[in-house]
Design a protein around this nucleic acid. Structure first.
Lengths: 230, 230
DNA sequence: CCTTGTGAAGCTGTTCACAGCC
DNA sequence: GGCTGTGAACAGCTTCACAAGG
């Protein structure tokens, strides 16, 4: 994963709780693990149980949770439902978040139909594209709007998060349009850097790079085989 | 991004060059930036130029490159083409890598059509699914095969990298099948942990989690507004 | 003079190991 | 006795600042 955060950290004087980035990135994993435990009827779990379910080291899990507060009971463990609620509250998942997807090519269309969002508090509220052939068509039950309607849509539906699913060349223009429309968090799937003003968060998911990293390790494995086997 | 590497690091005695993970993840970014410079006819660039193009700190760029060797000239900078070749060689991008995608729902189909792969040395060589309705159909010019043919396909085409693009429930089964077929690197898009034997690399891309992280920061911004504005 | 390459410092995140508490 | 919460040690990554070298 490639991550870029552009908003600067606030001075320590502000009443920020300051949960480390690495912890924030794992909280959704814990939440998913807890929901799995709830589903199978577990009422209480130890940090060992939950860590196993989430695929992390138990000490790390406990340290992560300690940033939210003291929600466990020594000698007993964590109340699954209670902890689940506390994490959900902390990461803002007691409400649903509307997102707008810009670019309804293959990837944008796939994202608009993605089943995994709804149970994680993500709702695809609007689709936007620039292509006249796509504007007005319906994808996953949502009518595709024109890019120039973005500001109105964002304001009307109070959307805070935008997804860029365009080719790389269009990414900066789309990012500018999103910021102009009032979006303050962007998930960028385009293989390009985007510049945004301070206060706007950008995260980047680069599909090629993930595979290139795997390819690098493959190459090393192959090279080592040669060294070892002749 | 959420990343899991399951292969263990090799003992220091082996002739590994030991490029740090963080550096490996950025090399493809540099390569892309260099290709952009080549395209615009730049022959030489300083670490400042390249760092700006890639969106990183110049010192970090230089340290990253220093892990590959000494490919710059003091007082001058880097020869763009030469450096591009050296990075490409290092990350194994002088060859193409065939990948197999398992699961051709919305996401799998979008990936099979993704334009960004070919220029990065990634070639989608095969598509696999379990659904009888999908098997035999053609997607992006590739005929979808049955999961039980996976081993034959992987062997015949010498595929080393597999992509899991199924729902979470199927992920572990698919991972097992991939490993059984001889795949040693997996990119997992399913919202689930997969267990693999030692020596197999797994990277995970979780679309919901990326948005949940953004939502967390949105919530904090909203909370701070309240504190500041009333 | 300019820019690379790099020791050293600083920071973030992880893991250990145990005190504290039920 | 058992498990949480946490200080302290550790490991990895980033940034600084400058020596080395064209």
């Amino acid at each position: 994963m490639t991550i870029l955060r552009s908003s600067h950290r606030l001075p320590a004087a502000t009443p920020e709780r300051g949960i480390p980035d690495a912890t924030v990135a794992r909280l959704p994993v814990y939440l998913r693990a807890l929901n799995a435990l709830i589903e199978q009827g577990t009422g209480t779990c130890s940090s060992n149980d939950l860590a196993a379910q989430a695929g992390v080291n138990p000490a790390k899990l406990r340290k992560d949770l300690s940033h939210l507060g003291s929600y466990g009971t020594r000698g007993v463990g964590y109340d699954v439902e209670y902890l689940s609620y506390q994490i959900a509250r902390e990461i803002g998942q007691t409400q649903d978040w509307d997102v707008v997807i810009v670019g309804v090519g293959n990837l944008g269309s796939a994202l608009s139909a993605y089943q995994g969002f709804s149970t994680r508090g993500i709702r695809v509220a609007a689709l936007v594209d620039t292509s006249p052939e796509r504007i007005g068509t319906e994808i996953s039950g949502i009518t595709v709007s024109a890019l120039q309607d973005l500001t109105a849509i964002v304001a009307e539906r109070e959307i805070a998060i935008g997804i860029i699913a365009t080719p790389g060349e269009a990414a900066q223009k789309v990012a500018d349009a999103l910021v102009e429309a009032g979006i303050t968090s962007i998930l960028n799937f385009a293989p390009a850097l985007v510049q945004v003003p301070e206060g706007v968060d950008v995260r980047k998911v680069d599909l090629s790079i993930e595979l290139q990293i795997l390819a690098y390790h493959e190459q090393r494995k192959a090279g080592l085989d040669k060294v070892v086997n002749g």
